[in-house]
Design a protein around this nucleic acid. Sequence first.
DNA 1: ATGGCATGACAATCATGA
Length: 260
Amino acid sequence: MKLATWNVNSLKVRMPHLLSWLGSSQVDIVCLQETKTTDDSFPVQELLDAGYRSHFTGQKTYNGVALLLREGHAGPASDLVFALPALEDPQKRLIAATVNGLRVVCGYFPNGQAVDSDKYVYKLQWLAALTQWLGAELAAHDKLALVGDFNIAPEDRDVYDPAAWAGQVLCSEPERAAFRGLLSLGLVDAFRLFEQPERSYTWWDYREMAFRRKMGLRIDHILLTPSLASSCAACDVAVDLRRLERPSDHAPVVATLSGA
DNA sequence: ATGGCATGACAATCATGA
């Protein structure tokens, strides 16, 4: 079973890439972020035609998350959650469901804009609310995956120019401490279970030919509970999607879970 | 030192992203 996360940066614009990738990659559970689409205009039928059922929560212009489940491979979703319970928040950034006994939590973590902005304060509050809620989720679910666009580069090796980014948003110590806080709940960074190429990233700025120059950050993640981590056979970045015409600025991350 | 590029809302620029 393949579990994937991808910040599409507008589902409407990225539908051709998404449909093509679904067809070629055979991913079974797909977590999307930044759909930027309201629920009434979500492309339910197009995705059904491609063999995927959808669950989603979105809003106009910003944010929006979704789960796509491959018909015949991923079972029905139960215990759906569409927001962090502890947080009064109009921004649609979280969706969770149980599929095939696997608890899947898909998040579009706040960007934070800059460490001195109120958006950064909101980001840390959101992280605290997530961490608190996840503690309870983990107590109830042995097999849990926390995936999405974390908007945090956990370590310097996840940054193309650590010196330039030191202390900046996405790399600041409080954000990294929050990331470690999630790990200390009992989660493992699936990507680091395996030998990876140098300069592996998941996001590259649209400007400055950043992708071609390998100027990226690894900010999209798949975190697994130990029982899932032990069945994880691979975890890779689908870099090819960043090479396409009119790409998302993020590439998907895909984990292969055996026996699930 | 700043902005570059992309997207959406809206109808010329502007907010936001990371």
